[in-house]
Simulated assay, not measured.
Amino acid sequence: MQSCFFSTSRTTNDGSNETDQEGSNKLSKDKSIKKNLLHENIYTIPNFLTFTRLVSAPVVGYWVLQGNYTDASILFGIACVTDGLDGWIARRFNMQSIVGTIIDPMADKTLMTILTVTLAMQSLIPIPIAGIILGRDAGLILASFYYRYISLPEPKTFKRYWDFSIPSAEVRPTMISKVNTAIQMGYICLSLLAPVFDFTGHIGLDYLGYTCAATTIWSGASYVYTKDAVRILHPPSNIKK
């Protein structure tokens, strides 16, 4: 009778132990799961479109400072189109990625921040409103650095910190944040178009600016009080890092 302290095994035709083979296959499967979990494909069309929007931001800002509002408006319009297009492609062709949830709002905020600063420098946006917009964004950026660090799987190295193919946390925009983004884009877009179509200082634009400031403060607070705004990703406990 076999002892109950030993697992049963069978020797295959090539002399290898079947139990060892099963263990090896399980180990390979676990390694594959771990690799798929910690890394994802970031070289997708939606991420490329997002990157082009990120690169276009300083160009738009430069044209604003030069007073070339027409070209700045055209490039800003193209950036807005890519903002909607990359999301549609990602959903339609199943190209969503965790890194996309990070760099997409990053590209939007970079574009909006540069435009806010340059338009304020050109006196097309009141400085107090620009300060509220920039203050909220600065707070969110600092928070994103913090959450990236605490959620990054071990080892927490400098190289792995900036390797965005390793997802660690997922940002879920709140409803008021989405509303605020739309209002901000509308306000900044109209402020950019104002010198082109000569409606600078219109009272409707002023009221839109006040609304933008109010929703900006509200949306910033929503990330603090909404529990699922940021979701930290963890690998399964049975997968060793």
Rank of each mutant, 00 (worst) to 15 (best):
A130V: 11
G139H: 07
I78H: 04
D228M: 13
T12G: 13
M112A: 14
T211H: 06
L85Q: 04
H234T: 12
D108T: 02
T101F: 00
S16T: 15
S28N: 11
I102M: 15
Y161R: 12
V196P: 05
V99Y: 13
V171Q: 01
Y225K: 08
R91S: 01
A107K: 00
T82E: 02
P46Q: 10
L37E: 08
F158Y: 05
H39E: 07
V224Q: 12
N17R: 11
I103K: 00
R172H: 09
K241C: 09
D108F: 03
F76S: 10
V99F: 14
F48K: 00
A120M: 13
I232V: 15
M112N: 13
D83A: 02
E170I: 10
I125D: 07
F145A: 05
L85D: 00
V117K: 02
R92V: 00
F145G: 04
T101H: 10
L208N: 02
T216I: 02
T12R: 15
N17W: 05
P155Q: 14
V55E: 01
T226K: 11
W218C: 07
L192P: 09
T19A: 15
L193M: 13
T211Q: 02
F93L: 07
M95N: 10
R136L: 06
S28G: 07
W88M: 09
L152Y: 06
P153Q: 09
T70C: 03
M1T: 15
